[in-house]
Design a protein around this nucleic acid. Sequence first.
DNA 1: ATAGAATTCAAACGAGCGTTTGAATTAGGC
DNA 2: GCCTAATTCAAACGCTCGTTTGAATTCTAT
Lengths: 238, 238
Amino acid sequence: MAASRPARKGVAIDATSADTKTRILDAAESLFMEHGFEATSLRSLTTAAGVNLAAVNYHFGTKEVLFQAVLTRRLDPMNQERIKLLKGVEREAQGRALSCEKVLFAMLIPALKIARDEKRGGKNFLRLLGRAYADPAPFIRHFLSGQYAEMIGLYKEAFLKALPHLSRQELTWRLHFVMGALSYTLAGTDAVKLFAQMTAVEKYDDELLLQRLAPFLVAGLKAPALADSRKLELVSGD
Amino acid sequence: MAASRPARKGVAIDATSADTKTRILDAAESLFMEHGFEATSLRSLTTAAGVNLAAVNYHFGTKEVLFQAVLTRRLDPMNQERIKLLKGVEREAQGRALSCEKVLFAMLIPALKIARDEKRGGKNFLRLLGRAYADPAPFIRHFLSGQYAEMIGLYKEAFLKALPHLSRQELTWRLHFVMGALSYTLAGTDAVKLFAQMTAVEKYDDELLLQRLAPFLVAGLKAPALADSRKLELVSGD
DNA sequence: ATAGAATTCAAACGAGCGTTTGAATTAGGC
DNA sequence: GCCTAATTCAAACGCTCGTTTGAATTCTAT
């Protein structure tokens, strides 16, 4: 069991090791995104980062902790900004009902800002995040739940007020769909060509992407609730 | 290099080995779903299936081929049924414009039927499929592209006619969002509690799930197209 | 300058992986 | 009943994995 984050005597913070740690985090962000968690070996990772193999265990303890650190570095500020933005919009409305668009945009804007800012991970990080959403590993799922709990709670309340025709249960499902479309879309790389010719026609552009996604999601959220008595007849015969 | 699918003399087809192959496929479907491709070892898989370790390589050649076989077994019939259903709806319309709902339901119904039918993989398979959509492994992405090419092409044309206000490009994006919400939702297990209290309130029910998803997707698909000249102002300042 | 802590490094550890092998076993056509 | 091909099996191969170790090195406070 190595000391997982040894602190210097009394110095600022990690003058020399900061470089090593950052190099590891950067390489990890890129490789985890490209190959996933299991398929990325610490040997290829440390080679790409230009550090010694043992550096990961020295600075982070285990590979799993490293993965969480990669996510935390970007995700925590992003979710904090989402919360701040939502509170700003709510203050601005002064009790009046918020529009669904306003709430949704408060959620999307921090993601968009990250996509634009290479220094904060850029598209790479968002794609990694999209992958993480769908990863079956329990430690990833637990971690994400924790990271999102506060933000999701606040947004659920806000959407509930903006979409009074939806029950709490209906809204929960719709937010699930929203996160699905968002994460799947963010996870897409140029290699994803299930729907061909797209990448040929227009360059992959995360800003344009979110601008196309937003109207789709707003319309979906605003759709009338499914009345329990009049269920959709999906299957005629069996 | 083992013979990857040796045929008996002239006998029906794989009288004895069919059992072994099926047991492997069933165990693989369940384990790949639960842990993902990389994290599932052939040793745990063959133990769960009650067959010898070497049986996978004997019957399938490699682990990757086994994974593809797991998907093909269910996916190929499902997509064939989707195509059949779409053609039926189109014949029924006799040239009249199809509604967006009709096209979407033709796409969802075969998935719903599988979810209901444990003998065809049931919910397990759909969740595995949802995971596979988000897997970064190139051999999985290539395989899925191939499996979906024909079906996606036909549905894109159908949606294009049902949604004349959308350009081909816009539609491509929206189908992307649809697949995202669908696969993410299908991949969800009870362990997924990003949005808590859901599983507590209502039992996980794939039929109800698709009935909630459909209105959301229909509304999203029907949403007005984004006019290029009047882009959404997502970010005010930077 | 020096003591002591923090960090880097090369090397190794034990475990688990996918796959291969060759003998033992089973089943079907004659 | 025998021959042959298909299948099962236990064992091993070679490799890569995440992690640990202990010595060498670098840095910093005194």
